[in-house]
């Protein structure tokens, strides 16, 4: 067998061995364990942030969102995805936002467990700062594009 073909076969076998080194099954969740502890950054300047669990969940979870720490009104519920230990949320306006975990998708159910409450304060950059950077970037970009274009024309004419 030529060397290259042998090499290809070895790579394919190595690939197969590597792929079978871990269990090839999806994660299975149970609904009877304690809720993990929820954590979050205290502040976000961009309106997005990551909620984290103290450990990977062993049951289906939902995150409740409210604009007050007592959760008198739950604004939105987010389903937790799979057995991952984090969730990324985005698009929040300035203000204080509160989150907690819930173990059941039926809030009134008897066996519903609730986790600790975390607060994220969203404080976007001032608009003048953003517009200032935008204008600086625009000026530098136009200068660069003009530089390339005029030199390109000049070098073509020289040829």
């Amino acid at each position: 067998m030529p060397n290259l073909i042998r090499f290809a076969v070895y790579i394919a076998l190595f690939l197969l061995i590597t792929l079978n080194a871990r269990p090839a099954s999806a994660y299975v969740l149970s609904a009877q364990d304690e809720l993990p502890v929820l954590s979050a950054p205290s502040q976000s300047r961009e309106g997005y942030f990551v909620l984290k669990l103290s450990e990977a969940p062993s049951q289906a979870l939902w995150v409740e969102y409210s604009t007050n720490p007592e959760f008198t009104k739950v604004v939105r519920t987010y389903p937790w995805f799979g057995d991952f230990d984090r969730m990324t949320l985005s698009g929040f306006s300035n203000g204080e936002h509160f989150f907690r975990l819930r173990s059941n998708n039926q809030p009134q159910a008897n066996q519903t467990q609730l986790s600790n409450v975390v607060k994220v304060r969203v404080d976007h950059y001032p608009l003048w700062q953003a517009i200032g950077l935008f204008l600086v970037g625009l000026v530098v970009f136009l200068f660069l594009a003009g530089l390339i274009w005029t030199n390109h024309q000049r070098s073509r004419n020289d040829d």
């Binding site: 309106g47 976007h124 950077l133």
Partner: peptide
């Protein structure tokens, strides 16, 4: 709402 905001500060800073 911020995802539809054309004056989203961090996004405006990110552009250039």
């Amino acid at each position: 709402p911020k995802l539809l905001d054309l004056l989203f500060p961090a996004a405006v800073m990110f552009l250039f």
